[in-house]
Amino acid sequence: MRALRLLTLLVPAFAFAGEVVTLPGGRFAPLFGLDVGQSAFPVGTFRLDVRPVSRAEFAAFLEGNPAWRKGKAPKTLVDERYLATFTPAKHPAGPVTQVSYFAARAYCAAKGGRLPSTLEWEYAAAADETRRDASREADFAQRILDWYGQPNREGDLEQPGSPRNVYGLEALHGLVWEWTDDFNAVFVSGDNRQDGDTNPKFMCGSGATGSARREDYAAFMRYALRSSLTPRSTLPRLGFRCAYEVNP
C-alpha cells in the first residue's frame, strides 16, 4: 500500500506516461479452447495499455518497489537473466524486456491493473488498422509472419513503431512477445504433431480438438512461445502491457 502511494507520487515523473484505451466487448474465436459446437467466447469490455510497458516506466516502478530490482528480486520469482541488460537510460521509450511473469504482475497491480488474459490479448491483437478481427485474413497473417521471419537485430527495441490498430493499440505484433495472465492455461504440446490429439490434461473442456484455425501460423507461434515459458522466465524479447477493469 505504501508502495502504491509512493508510486502515485512518481507518476508525473514518468517520461512516457502510459496511454490507455477502452476496448468494447465482443465475441472472439481464439486459436485454442473452443468446445465442439462453440463458435466464439464472449469478451467483456476492458481497458488496455496502448504500448508495451517502457523501460522508463519500469525504472520508475523499481524506484518505488526496490524489492523488484535486479539482484533483490527473490530467485523463486525471477530467473538468472532477470533485467540482465536493463538500462533505462538507453532507449527509455522502448519496451522493457527480461521481466518475469511475477514481476509483470506486480507492476500491473501497482498501477491498479492486471495482466490481460490470453483471450483479451488475442482479441485486441486480432485487429489491424481497419478491421476488428483480421485474424482470418491472409494479408494480416503474412505481415505478422514476416516479423517472425526476421532475426532479432540490435536496435529493434528502440521504440514501438507499428501503426495503431482500430482500437488505438500499438505494437501488439512486430516488437516483443507479451505476457498474459493465463499464459500457461493452453498448452501447445512440445510436439506439434500431437496437437490433433484430444488431451484433457492440456485442454479445457471435454471434446476440445486442437486449434480453430490450422492456417493461423502466427497465432500458433504465440501459443507455442507462451507454452515454452515458466513464470520465472525472462526473455530478451518478452515484455508486457497491463489491462484494467472499466470501472476500477
Binding site: R81, R193, L225, S233, L235, P236
Partner: peptide, 10 residues
Amino acid sequence: AASTFTAPGH
C-alpha cells in the same frame, strides 16, 4: 520433441 521443448535462452 516434447522432452526438448525449449524457450529462447534455455
